[in-house]
Write a protein that binds this DNA or RNA. Structure first.
Lengths: 155, 155
DNA sequence: TATTGTTATACTCTATAACTATA
DNA sequence: TATAGTTATAGAGTATAACAATA
């Protein structure tokens, strides 16, 4: 080992300057989103629900009887990718597809009783997690500001 | 077709109510991030740079001579995934690995002249894209607020 | 023994094309 | 001919384990 490194600014000693990237909105959005999803995963581990699965069950709960394509499109999920997602939820007995008499091409989605129970638990876990985020943001006003700014960004 | 559907609130007529999910920070973060990355992709199509590739080249440009592991860790990229990423950049002649005499295990990273030229173009494209985002956010003050809120969220 | 870079691998998410059954 | 759901598949992004060279 070179003892001179203690007196020179060798590459190993210098820390990485990421100040430019830290100012980039997209980069910071990505890092924050990954972090929040990681936290979500910890809070929802017992319920065995991933973010997309929770959003689907939540949406079916507040919109019973909608077609697959309606729920999928509302969440920005391609209908082809939606199929295996709800296959898993249906296999777990959390929701069901029902054929529609008036248009036998489409399937209406409903929560099962088991699904309703899980969604209630998940909504509770989500409320607690959200409260945790609000504290870190500095209050509900800061949270509202963040949602407003994200809204303006589009998407 | 059943003409009665014009008088009843059938599932096909109702739109999906996503108001609950719209209040969820993680969900809104995800949607906004996907949208911004999609916009980024359009702005950077000519340069053939994906977000991760731009961040790597930018960081090497401002931190020449750092080890692979330093750049990778700073961006939250696992060193195993960093290898194929910079393989592509090196194959395109945008950067090079250099063996370090003082520690022959590590590779120091540098931009090539071609890489420096591309990074300058990319920084320009990024500045324009960022300005576009700032306009949508409602000014630089709103941008600073957003970055501050994302900072508080952690990650 | 520990670290750096590498390879192999697997799992998730996302995107597209083509099929089926219905309309 | 068009639509809803499905299947197959391919491409990214991400995660872990194990290895070679070096410290």
């Amino acid at each position: 080992m070179n003892t001179l490194k203690h007196f020179s600014a060798s590459a190993d000693d210098r820390s990485v300057d990421a100040s430019t990237m830290e100012q980039v909105i997209g980069y910071r959005l990505r890092r924050a989103q990954l972090y929040v999803f990681q936290q979500f995963h910890q809070h929802f581990a017992e319920l065995e629900l991933r973010p997309a699965e929770y959003s689907v069950l939540n949406l079916i709960g507040t919109n019973p009887g909608r077609k697959q394509s309606q729920i999928a499109e509302s969440l920005g999920i391609k209908r082809a990718n939606f199929v295996p997602l709800i296959n898993g939820l249906e296999r777990r007995g959390l929701m069901i597809r029902r054929s529609q008499p008036d248009d036998r091409r489409s399937h209406a989605l409903f929560l099962t009783t088991k699904g309703e129970v899980l969604v209630k638990q998940a909504d509770q876990a989500q409320a607690e997690f959200e409260a945790h985020c609000v504290v870190r943001l500095g209050g509900t006003k800061a949270r509202d500001q963040l949602l407003e700014l994200l809204e303006r960004l589009g998407g």
